[in-house]
Amino acid sequence: MRYDRSEAIRYMGGRAGDENAGVLADLAYLKLRNEVQARSVYRVLDCSVDADGVLLGGEYFKSAKLAAHIKSCKRAVLLAATLGPKVDIALRRMSVANIAEGAAGQAVCAALIESYCDETEAKISSEYGGLHFKLRFSPGYADWSLADQPRILTMLDAAKRIGLTVTAGGMLAPVKSVTAVIGITDGCEKPQNSCETCENTNCLYRK
């Protein structure tokens, strides 16, 4: 799995080229890489949209922003991916021992789960003989409620297949995990900026 150092520095709140932050991230990565047990599960489903939401594999998800994002798609991938519970345990350990290392570890794992999702997308694409995808769109993003997490995990049988569960508050556990809808396109669309549909314009991480 690719370790994107500059993304890790960005997630840590460092400036581009911050060498102190980079060294911190590298040390954290060395401690974490053997704790990663990345697993994913996905289904390719038919989808259709209306103004308020998306019908995906027979389940309706309310989110106008998601609907707008994948309105041109007839099919979409429903994906769940996780770095596994050992990473969470290691991150807690690192935070107790050294808060700077703990924060760096969080940032490294945020970068790793994104890399893993990218790689999983590429694998899915090649399994299907070459697919084109919209950007991933996840519950908790824009107007899509986290309350939909349990239904997504049930649709993917994610607890049994990859050990991914959801807490009472709609959080994924293990923490370093992602669920997402990925619209399948005919390949003619322009590349997008992953932050453009988001209304949180004060976000520290906005590109």
Partner: peptide
């Protein structure tokens, strides 16, 4: 200065 340095300083102080 930024979060990584703040945290490293906090850790040194700790």
């Amino acid at each position: 200065l930024f979060l990584p340095q703040l945290l490293m300083s906090a850790e040194a102080a700790k």
